[in-house]
Design a protein around this nucleic acid. Sequence first.
DNA 1: AGGGAAACCCGAACGC
DNA 2: TGCGTTCGGGTTTCCC
Length: 275
Amino acid sequence: MPELPEVETIVRALRDGGRGGDSILGKKIVNAKVFWNKTIEETGPRIFTKKIVGQKIKNISRRGKYIHIHLDNDHLFFHLRMSGDIVIEDEEIPVHKHVRINLSLDDKRKISFYNPRKFGRVWLVDDPDRVVGKLGIELFDKSLDKKLLHQMLNTRKRQLKPLLMDQTFISGLGNIYTDEALHMSKLHPLSISDQINMKESSVLLNSIRSVLETGIKTNGASFDWMYKGGEFQNQFRVFQRKGEECPVCGTEIRKMVVGQRGTHICPNCQQLQEL
DNA sequence: AGGGAAACCCGAACGC
DNA sequence: TGCGTTCGGGTTTCCC
């Protein structure tokens, strides 16, 4: 399930070359094939194809969990949602049944958008804000410090975990990394945001960044069977470890539901403060 | 305003 | 073994 580290890994592979490939910067898109129409937002497949063919890839970056491909005239965004990968392949590789879009390049290669569960989406827009305009501050934005986070938390009154996962609040945190960061911070996912003090905000911010940095270093978590990149899943502290021992105190890890999401906590380390 | 539910999907895991 | 059922994960949309 591609979260920020997985997306970051894909972006680096496309932009800088990686996983054995060469960068696609500067290549021209010479053909586009759409195998699942609903993958495309904003425009239908015909307009999408017509507009994108002929444009060159100027830059590739990331905003939240979106992959942002800057073209000559337009902006191409990918979001993988629940599953999948974006890979560069030789043109003659047969189209796998999970490939939703192929973009052929002018060097006999193609960009293949793998998305088994059909949740992933693609946008081709002239104004990037149409796609990423509402996103909150980037996790690694330098202006995001403990003071700002503390203030952001305290001006809302929401359950901590759903707030952290709200992409308009901070962009980039998903279910796995939020559970991991909350455990590292010793904060309960149901804590109310305006009860978090400065010290806790500081620890939380450091934990979030630490967990994400580790994820990026290990190329993300790859227990999504389509995404083969990473090793982060071997370091989970609590995620998907229900019934096992907390790595800090040995207490049995519990699973609960918070904001409709599977949530893993150590009931000893992460106690809900009574008001 | 915040929270819960449903919808979108389908391979894997589980239950019988 | 083989069948049917449930689950999960990110986001949006709708409802209370």
